[in-house]
Nucleic acid binder design. Structure first.
Length: 591
RNA sequence: CGGAAUGUUGCCUAGUGGCUAAGGCGCCUGCUUUGGGAGCAGGAAAUCGGAGGUUCGAGUCCUCUCAUUCCGACCA
């Protein structure tokens, strides 16, 4: 490819909207163009990178027995109604009508489409197990796209779906993906961590997320250095401190003016926050069996020094949605914001964190402006509807496994794997006949990787102050020839052009900067675009005996005689490819 | 959906209510130059996001609206 002919061009300055490094470099390098919030066009350079990534995805999927299919982006609504997600998912899913006034949806993911396919083609246990996948466009009308390609509305996803007759079979395919995903990310040069995660809108039982650690990430992971425990904060467990158990004392109302927060209250009464009870008012939307929805007022109680984990609470009460309660809703159950507790409250579903339930003589709200109650005891002074773990893990808490101090880190989710089980197959009647002729639901798994997000995370991990440094495995080109025109002769140009043909003939992907630009412009663009090897051909290099050979990201360069360039390049590219290959390791599966 | 910020040419920015909206980068033409974002000369490119309003006069003030970004809610 000739630089002079590439569709798109580099920019000296990034648009002021671009904040994330990957966003800036991808725009400045002429890789992507933003069309609207969360919508991007991919220009030829980016397309080449995507092709490389997709190539790796195809190879790794083939390795675990995946068969490629393609399912539509626009899907009839009825299959989403069958699975129930038509009703569960809100405005994130775009619904439309076709010319015949049929409800249609833009696919956010393809469980339903796959189930519909499977129930028409899978008949017998002899046809299982199966693994199918595609790399297909998803549309999710995300309320908050951000950071370039990190969080977008339209994106390509590699999604695979496993179909099995047994849970053991599912486990096998799940573990195969677990390893395969590490291989994929490693081959792309991205360091990831697999963490346990919530199953979210996918439903199902077990899930892992593959996380790239970066401060620009939106997820928080909690991990333990000493035993290796790690988890998305949404589901992270931790060892709770021993509850303080005293003889329950008489309940007593005390005046506590202007103590609307736990912090103020603890200060005012000169007690530790752990001696208080925190009340959090939420409203859960709960779907009943007959597809009707009800709103349930939830009163969550935690020990004062802990925070509520909304995902845990949401799962505990099986909520479809969970939101903070409005002030009038709080008052309607007889509680007072800032001075709330379950004591004397009616028509609230009280969920108490284990630790708060075990603790004695806590200070809780009196449900009266300016008053709290001393010596509140769960069970005696109020009856919990549910006692479970609803506390959010924090760095500094103790590891559930080994008791060491937990740490936390921000991360971007680049992939996920779900054990769906029969969540969809039962709803959509995806069955097979077993050896006895009995109809049984297929046991499913689903596995996703966001391709563009992966690309941008690689840029986040591999760049310097001048631009991108592509891992050779996904670089748009292997070699970038920088031709420096020489007024006094044509040798540089002839040499560069000859190299360009020779390298192409040798099967090396080469970009030649044949533009009539000054050396500075070309060097800066080469750094920005980030191709692994740069060959500079100019008067000076020729006088020194050849062409300048430089690996992107390394300081030093060397002069290589022209007739040795192809050999040298092949050696270096092999070396770079081996570095990538060396990253691939068998990982230990962690449940 | 809440909070905040910003919209001036392809990109970055300047622009006290007052003359024909200014500069840099980039782009086009010509000359010159070629090892780290060169120089000279000429040129094209803006209905100042949009709609109303205040005013003798609005890029500038007011109202509404749209868009984008950031923080939250949300999110596989």
């Amino acid at each position: 490819m000739r630089f002079s002919q590439i569709f798109g061009h580099t920019l000296k300055e990034a648009p002021s909207d671009a904040q994330a490094v990957s966003h800036q470099y991808l725009i400045r390098g002429g890789y992507i163009h933003q069309v609207a919030a969360g919508l991007f066009s991919y220009l030829p350079l980016a397309r080449r990178v995507l092709n490389k990534i997709e190539g790796i995805l195809h190879e790794e999927m083939a390795m675990i027995g995946g068969q490629e299919v393609t399912m539509p982006v626009v899907l009839p609504a009825d299959m989403w109604q069958e699975s129930g997600r038509w009703y569960q998912i809100g405005s994130e899913m775009t619904r439309l009508k076709d010319r015949k006034d049929h409800d249609m949806v833009l696919a956010m993911t393809h469980e339903e489409a796959l189930c519909d396919l499977a129930r028409k083609y899978i008949r017998s246990h002899k046809e299982l197990p199966q693994l199918v996948y595609h790399i297909q466009t998803k549309w999710r009308d995300d309320p908050r796209p951000r950071a370039g390609l990190i969080r977008v509305r339209e994106f390509k996803m590699k999604d695979s779906y496993s179909l099995d007759t047994s849970w053991e079979g599912l486990d096998k395919q799940y573990r195969a993906h677990y390893q395969s995903y590490f291989n994929i990310f490693n081959r792309c040069g991205l360091d990831v961590l697999a963490v346990k995660s919530d199953t979210g809108m996918m439903g199902g039982k077990v899930a892992h997320e593959f996380m790239y650690l970066t401060p620009i990430g939106e997820d928080t992971i909690i991990y333990c250095d000493s035993c290796g425990y790690n988890s998305n904060r949404q589901v992270a467990e931790f060892m709770k401190p021993e509850a303080v158990k005293e003889e329950p004392a008489e309940i007593e109302k005390v005046k506590t003016p202007d103590c609307k927060t736990i912090e103020d209250l603890a200060k005012f009464l000169s007690i530790p926050e752990s001696k208080t009870a925190k009340a959090v008012f939420m409203v859960a939307t709960i779907q009943e069996d007959n597809n009707t929805e009800i709103e349930k007022f939830i009163l969550a109680i935690l020990r004062g020094d802990m925070d509520l984990n909304e995902t845990k609470l949401s799962n505990a009460v099986k909520a479809k949605e969970l939101r903070p309660a409005h002030e009038d809703e709080i008052k309607a159950v007889g509680a007072v914001p800032g001075y709330g507790s379950p004591v004397g409250v009616k028509n609230a579903f009280v969920v108490v964190d284990e630790l708060a339930a075990e603790s004695t003589n806590l200070v809780g709200g009196a449900n009266e402006e300016g008053y709290h109650l001393l010596n509140v005891n769960c069970g005696r002074d109020f009856k919990p509807n549910l006692v479970t773990d609803i506390a959010a893990a924090e760095a500094g808490y103790k590891c559930i496994n080994c008791g060491s101090e937990l740490k936390s880190e921000k991360a971007v989710e680049v992939g996920n794997i779900f054990k769906l089980g029969t969540r969809y197959s039962e709803a959509m009647n995806v069955t097979y006949q077993d050896e006895n002729g009995k109809l049984l639901p297929v046991i499913m798994g689903s596995y996703g990787i966001g391709v563009g997000r992966l690309l941008s995370c690689v840029v986040e991990q591999h760049h310097d102050d001048y631009g991108i440094i592509w891992p050779v495995s996904i670089a748009p080109f292997h070699v970038h020839i920088v031709l420096l025109h020489d007024k006094k002769g044509t040798e540089a140009q002839e040499t560069a052009e000859a190299l360009y043909s020779d390298l192409q003939a040798a099967g090396i992907e080469v970009l030649i900067d044949d533009r009539k630009e000054s050396p500075g412009v070309k060097f800066n663009d080469a750094d920005l675009v980030g191709i692994p090897v740069r060959l500079t051909v100019g008067r000076r290099s020729l006088d020194n005996g050849g062409v300048e050979f430089k690996i992107r990201g390394e300081k030093d360069s060397e002069i290589i005689p022209v007739d040795q360039v192809v050999d040298k390049l092949q050696g270096v590219l092999d070396m770079l490819k081996n570095d990538i290959r060396d990253r691939i390791k068998t990982v230990e599966y962690k449940d």
